[in-house]
Simulated scan of single mutants.
Amino acid sequence: MKRHLLIIDPQEDFCNPSGALFVPGAERDIPRIAALLSQPLAAVHVTLDTHHVLDIAHPLWWRDSDGNPPAPFTIIDELTRWHAADPAHQAQSAAYVAALAQNGRYPLCIWPPHCLIGSAGHAVAAELFAALCDWEARTGQSVDYVRKGENPFTEHYSAIAADVPDPSDPATLPNQALLSALQEADEILVCGEAGSHCVANTVRDLVAHGIPAQKLTLLTDCFSPVPGFEALQSTFLSELTAVGAKITGG
């Protein structure tokens, strides 16, 4: 049996209590994920949330009429209060908010700047990184690292495609290389952070792009939700079990 391990965004900013967007429970998920690497695995895929400081989901992008940025966790689902700090970005920003309302994805949430390119918070959590290096040395295979989120004009919760793909930017379009690799698996173990957002939307996109839900095993003791968004994780798990995905863990 070809078993693949798909680890979503196991980065310091999410998994370290001092991280910029710490997900409580992630610090306990990491040792359990690291232990999975002792199992026979045909491939290991690790996604990396990857952002610039100036990003449509970070406070610097937006201003109110008094020139103040939104606080982290502000939801921007209409533009009566908020406008792009750079007037050159206003039309595209307004179109993006409208596109999110139409496509049924999550509304725009303003996050603390996190997983910034070149920062310590972008790195894989140290305990897991050591286990990944050991897996590479032991098996002679390379971990498949997949970056997502570098386009500042769209969110990229899913490792498969951006929330609003940009036809001019291939990095926002469906990741055919990752999809093709996962199609070869008999079972895909899914874990990482956060269960309410990046895990949920990656898995939804896997199924939408032809990966049979029956191949997916969701390791619920190896992912946690962003506080305040627990219902999103619960909804995701209900959706996926209804179409045949398996759940293991606590």
Rank of each mutant, 00 (worst) to 15 (best):
A181V: 08
V203D: 03
C198L: 07
T172M: 04
P227C: 06
E193K: 03
P152N: 04
S234T: 15
I188T: 02
Q176L: 15
V199W: 00
Y157D: 02
S180Y: 10
A177E: 15
S168I: 14
V207T: 06
F153S: 09
G192E: 07
P225W: 11
A213F: 06
L173A: 04
S196D: 13
A171C: 03
R147Y: 09
C198E: 05
A231S: 14
P225I: 09
R204D: 14
E184T: 15
A162P: 02
P212R: 13
T235N: 15
S234L: 14
F229S: 13
G192R: 05
H156L: 07
D186F: 10
G149L: 00
V226L: 13
S158Q: 05
V146S: 00
P225S: 13
A171G: 03
L232T: 07
L219H: 08
Q176P: 10
A181D: 13
T154P: 00
Q233L: 12
L182G: 02
A200Y: 06
L232H: 11
S142I: 13
E187S: 05
V164M: 00
A159H: 04
E155N: 10
R204W: 11
V203C: 10
S234Y: 08
L178G: 01
A231T: 07
G149T: 02
L218T: 06
H197K: 02
P170S: 14
L173F: 04
I211A: 03
I211N: 08
L179K: 10
T172S: 08
Q183P: 01
R204Q: 14
V207E: 04
A231Q: 11
D169I: 12
P152T: 03
S196R: 06
E155I: 03
Q214S: 15
P174Y: 08
E193Q: 15
S196L: 07
C198F: 02
D163R: 12
H209C: 06
H197P: 02
L178A: 03
K215N: 08
D221F: 06
I211E: 06
R147G: 09
G192I: 03
S158N: 07
I211C: 11
Y145P: 09
